[in-house]
Simulated scan of single mutants.
Amino acid sequence: MLLKNIISSLNFFSSLSDEELELLASFSVVTAYDKEYVVHYEKTQSSSLLFLLEGVAKAYKIDKHNNEIFLHYIYAPSLLSDISSLKKETLISFSNVSLIEDSKILIIDYKKFKEHFLSKGHLCLEFTNEIILKSQQLQSLINREFIFTSVAKVAMMLHDDIEMFNSLKRTEISLILNIQPETLSRVLNRLKRDNIIDSKNTKITILDKEALLLVYEE
């Protein structure tokens, strides 16, 4: 597939004309990366704007004891770069981002992107929407870490990330949610008793999505 067509398939660039897509493609490239590749580290500066085309990535931080603090997953197609300002010439990462499966990434020269698009008022709305999305992710993180009960944490992950939940080991889920494995088991048993979920061979099936939503929204 032509690079122009790859770019046009992303909602972020759907407003661009064919001529603008050709221009953007002239300073862009698509690169394949293996699982566990670290896309960028926290607080590093980058001259590239990155979009995840295929695969899944993980955003996380490292605390002073060298422990990994999970933030959220990033699913394709999605913007990988953190946007905090439209004025700076480089992008600064809020967190570490690594790939959890083989992936493809669209890499755009950010300086040229600013020159030919942002400085002319193109795609500024899309950038604003991405900033809002990052803010919402931060709100969800605050709720998960400081406000939600263990039951609400598990319910939210089941509701929002059932495929990922079923692909991980219970110990990995416990680490992500910052709860004990025994607590995770008790919560799953409770949700099962309430006929909200069912399980077979460690795989969870949601029986009542509305009830699951109420568990962490009330």
Rank of each mutant, 00 (worst) to 15 (best):
F12N: 04
T31M: 12
L175R: 13
K134L: 15
S81N: 14
D198I: 02
E217H: 13
K64R: 15
Q45M: 09
T183I: 12
H116S: 14
K112N: 13
Q137L: 08
E182H: 03
V97M: 12
Q137M: 14
K120C: 05
T90G: 07
F148H: 06
F27N: 02
S103I: 07
S140N: 12
L184T: 03
S98P: 09
S17H: 03
H40S: 14
I179N: 05
K114V: 00
P77F: 12
E210G: 10
Q45C: 10
K43N: 15
N166L: 07
E218V: 11
K114W: 00
D18F: 09
F12W: 01
L21N: 09
L118Y: 01
F70P: 05
Y110G: 06
E54K: 15
A211D: 06
S47I: 11
D109K: 08
D194V: 03
K61C: 13
N178L: 07
I147P: 11
T31K: 14
Q139W: 09
I206Q: 10
F113R: 07
D161Q: 15
S17M: 04
Y33H: 13
N166K: 02
L106C: 05
L214E: 15
L99N: 07
K111C: 08
Y110V: 09
Y41M: 13
E36L: 12
S85R: 02
K134S: 12
V215Q: 11
F113S: 01
N195A: 12
N189S: 10
F148T: 01
N5I: 01
R144H: 04
I92L: 13
E20R: 02
P181M: 08
F94H: 04
D198P: 04
V154M: 06
D161M: 11
S95G: 05
T205V: 14
N96C: 04
R170L: 11
V187K: 00
A25L: 06
S119T: 12
N143Q: 13
S17A: 06
E42G: 01
H116R: 06
T44D: 14
K61D: 15
K64M: 12
H116F: 15
R186V: 04
T90Q: 13
I173F: 01
L212E: 03
P77Q: 07
I100S: 08
D160F: 10
L123Q: 05
G55P: 05
F27Q: 04
V154N: 06
V56M: 08
S9H: 03
I107T: 04
G55E: 11
S167A: 14
N201V: 05
I132M: 02
K134R: 12
S8M: 02
H159S: 15
R170S: 14
V187R: 02
S93N: 11
L214W: 00
S17Q: 07
A25F: 03
L3K: 08
